[in-house]
C-alpha cells in the first residue's frame, strides 16, 4: 500500500496513458482521437517530471545554502539527506527531464496541430470526420479525387 501511495504520481501516469490510448483506439471520430492522443502524450510529460523530481529538491537554479531561500529549503530536510543528495549543500531536482519534456511538449503540440489540420481537410473532402462514414464513402463513391 505504501508502495502505491509512494508512487501515486506513476499511477496517475498509467491512468492517463491508458485513458488516452483507449480514447484514441476506441473512437471513430477524428477529433476525439486527437484528444486521446494529446492526453497520451501529456501523460509522458508527467512521467518524465516524476523521474526528475527529487524529494524536497528545488528548481535547478544555483542557490546559496546560506541565503534565506536556501535555509528555508533545508529547514524541511534532514542534514543526512542533504549531504547525500545535495550539491554544495542544496538539493536540486534533476533539470534534464524537465528540459526534455519541454521539447516533447513542443513536438506534441506540433503533432496535434498537424493532426487537427488534417482533420479539417478530411472534413472538407468528405464532409465528415467519422472514420466509419469515410470508409463507406471511399467504398461507394466512384471518383477517388478530392
Amino acid at each position: 500500500m505504501s508502495f502505491l501511495l509512494g508512487h501515486f504520481n506513476y499511477l496517475i501516469v498509467v491512468f492517463l496513458m491508458m485513458g488516452g490510448l483507449w480514447i484514441t483506439f476506441s473512437s471513430r471520430n477524428y477529433i476525439k482521437r486527437m484528444i486521446g492522443l494529446a492526453l497520451f502524450q501529456t501523460s509522458v510529460g508527467l512521467f518524465y517530471i516524476s523521474l526528475g523530481k527529487v524529494a524536497g529538491g528545488t528548481a535547478a537554479i544555483v542557490l546559496d545554502k546560506t541565503s534565506k531561500a536556501g535555509e528555508a529549503l533545508n529547514a524541511h530536510l534532514s542534514p543526512d539527506y542533504v549531504a547525500r543528495a545535495g550539491v554544495d549543500g542544496v538539493v536540486y531536482s534533476n533539470p534534464l527531464p524537465h528540459v526534455l519534456i519541454l521539447t516533447a511538449i513542443v513536438v506534441g503540440v506540433a503533432t496535434l496541430a498537424v493532426g487537427l489540420a488534417i482533420a479539417v481537410r478530411v472534413r472538407e473532402a468528405y464532409g465528415t470526420v467519422e472514420a466509419g462514414e469515410i470508409a463507406e464513402l471511399d467504398r461507394t463513391e466512384a471518383g477517388p479525387r478530392a
Binding site: T111, V114, G115, I118, R121, A125, D138, A146
Partner: peptide
C-alpha cells in the same frame, strides 16, 4: 487523392503512438 487524408491521419496517430 482524398483517400490520402484518412491515410495520413491514421499514420499520424500510429506514428505518434
Amino acid at each position: 487523392d482524398r483517400r490520402a487524408l484518412p491515410a495520413a491521419f491514421n499514420y499520424l496517430v500510429m506514428g505518434t503512438i
